[in-house]
């Protein structure tokens, strides 16, 4: 046991206090929002709620969860997250496996073809025109799923993992007469499952948090996602607040949800991720580091 000097002890105490402040800076805002969402409306309207709830009521939650719009948005989010992630992982793994082969005719071309997409893109407007004018994908799930289905970055991550699979294992399968698809499914995928799981989680989180394509491509409320739903609920209010300053009171005031309602929507949308993340964070850390090695 090494004796610590007084200076080191003081530093340690200061350091711990700094870390506690960091924890507070992250958790207090969330706690405050949560407390407003479950407090009595009288305490909320008089702005008395600080860190802890005053009284208890779940009316706002019941209201939100009961609306068609919320249920529909939740359904859309789950659907897009699930289908988008599964399709992405399949296509990415197929690309990664093919590229991990030592040689095939045109490998160099394919590599350039993929890497170029990481550095150059047509940008927002050409993509928007393509999807709305030429492919007519407005108000379809395809507009949310297809454009971002292939991420070359993850192809490289998965490919480097496949290359790390001992070649004896692959060659023995090849000599037994297994085709490419069987080698991929029976030999490669079982070995790289942790990587595929990590990549799936990255992709799923991205899909779950998606809202911008909704803004671009959805004109119907039935196509909203949870994040877009939240954006409308929270942000229209502040939009309205601003407009009230300039335009007087004649805006549809009854549409403005009470504060409980807004805070409860934030919590409802945040809750699944907040509950799950402690269990999946280690995959993210691994994935980030794997990406930084090869990316």
């Amino acid at each position: 046991m090494i004796r610590k000097s007084t200076g080191e002890k003081i530093f340690q105490v200061v350091n711990i206090m700094f870390m506690l402040m960091i924890i507070a800076a992250i958790l207090f805002p969330l706690l405050h929002i949560f407390s407003i969402s479950v407090s009595e409306s009288s305490a909320v309207t008089t702005l008395k709620v600080g860190l802890l709830p005053i009284g208890f009521n779940l009316v706002a939650y019941k209201k939100i969860i009961g609306t068609n719009l919320f249920q529909r948005s939740l359904f859309n989010t789950v659907l897009v997250t699930f289908v988008g992630t599964v399709l992405s992982v399949i296509v990415i793994t197929m690309l990664a496996y093919a590229l991990s082969r030592r040689y095939f005719f045109g490998k160099k071309f394919v590599t350039y073809y993929l890497v170029i997409t990481m550095y150059f893109s047509g940008g927002l407007i050409p993509t928007y025109i393509l999807i709305t004018n030429y492919l007519n994908l407005e108000n379809t799930y395809l507009a949310y799923i297809l454009p971002s289905l292939v991420s070359v970055f993850y192809v490289i991550v998965v490919k480097s993992q496949i290359e790390a699979v001992p070649s004896d294992l692959v060659d023995s399968g090849a000599i037994d007469g297994a085709g490419e698809f069987r080698i991929l499914f029976n030999i490669i995928i079982p070995v790289i499952t942790p990587t595929i799981a990590a990549v799936s989680m990255f992709l799923a989180l991205g899909r779950w948090n998606m809202w911008f394509p909704v803004l671009l491509y959805a004109s119907k409320k039935t196509m909203w996602t949870l994040q877009y739903y939240l954006r409308s609920i929270v942000f229209e209010k502040s939009l309205i607040e601003q407009t009230v300053l300039t335009a007087g009171e004649n805006i549809e005031a009854d549409i403005i949800p009470p504060q409980n309602y807004q805070m409860a929507s934030i919590i409802v949308v945040a809750l699944p991720v907040v509950c799950i993340y402690p269990f999946i964070q280690k995959y993210f850390v691994k994935g980030i580091l794997a990406g930084s090695v090869k990316g």
């Binding site: 948090n209 809202w211 877009y228 929270v234 991720v273 907040v274 993340y277 850390v285």
Partner: peptide
């Protein structure tokens, strides 16, 4: 890590 997982909308 927590703030990384919640969306920018939240």
């Amino acid at each position: 890590y927590l703030p990384h997982f919640i969306s920018w909308v939240i």
